[in-house]
């Protein structure tokens, strides 16, 4: 997915840029800036609507804080393993890069599995997507986050494949770092969601 115009002369191994940051990294930062607003909009919607329960359960009647804490912790740990993957990539250690990328993906998958469990359990207890404003905005917000994690896992798996086959154009370490940026961002967003949605009482 990395894409660069080698526009500055012959030295295309490390293209010269005005800011010194590579185009890809700058692009990823800017993209994440935009994502902040996306989640900002979704979180605002949830905050406006979380107390509006004309039917079905209210937030504190179904939230399972111990479970969500554990799953949040699992996701946090995946940020740690992502850091290990990036550091391995900087050391040009393909084996451990792949290992930590895989572990990160697995932890991510566990988190998504937990979210599927949580959604199913809530649904059984009477909170459907269309039950109330709380239901619609809860599923939309956490669902969007879940989709982001899933996309991240897919990118991690693709990255493992590409590292194995040496198919990464340009710098391997930087590509891992880019995916890492994305992954950390998704984690941070979850911390915000966990705090605002689950911990702060409705």
């Amino acid at each position: 997915m990395a894409d660069t115009a080698l526009a500055h002369g012959a030295d295309h191994g490390a293209p010269h840029t005005t800011t010194g940051l590579s185009n890809n990294k700058l692009g990823m930062w800017i993209f994440l800036g935009s994502e902040c607003l996306l989640f900002g909009g979704l979180i605002s919607t949830y905050m406006l609507y979380k107390g509006r329960v004309s039917a079905g359960p209210q937030p504190d009647q179904i939230y399972d804080i111990p479970f969500t804490s554990v799953s949040s912790f699992v996701l946090l740990m995946s940020s740690l393993t992502m850091v290990l993957a990036v550091s391995a990539a900087h050391r040009r250690d393909d084996r451990n890069t792949n290992l930590w990328l895989t572990v990160t993906a697995l932890l991510g998958a566990t988190f998504v599995g937990g979210q599927v469990y949580e959604f199913t359990a809530f649904y059984r207890e009477g909170l459907g997507f269309t039950t109330s404003l709380f239901g619609s905005s809860f599923y939309t917000l956490t669902g969007f986050h879940g989709v982001h994690v899933t996309v991240g896992i897919i990118m991690l798996m693709a990255l493992v494949g590409m590292v194995r086959r040496n198919r990464i154009p340009g710098s391997k370490a930087e590509t891992v770092e880019l995916i890492g940026l994305y992954w950390h961002f998704v984690d941070i967003v979850w911390i915000v969601i966990f705090t605002l949605v689950y911990l702060i009482p409705s």
């Binding site: 399972d64 111990p66 479970f67 804490s69 554990v70 799953s71 912790f73 699992v74 740990m77 697995l106 932890l107 998958a109 566990t110 998504v112 599995g113 937990g114 599927v116 469990y117 199913t120 359990a121």
Partner: peptide, 25 residues
Amino acid sequence: IVLSFSRIMLSLSHSAGPLVFAVAG
């Protein structure tokens, strides 16, 4: 992975769930 894991969680008791989740991680 996701589906199996969530099925297992659904069949576990309410208190054992977080524990198993933590162990898996």
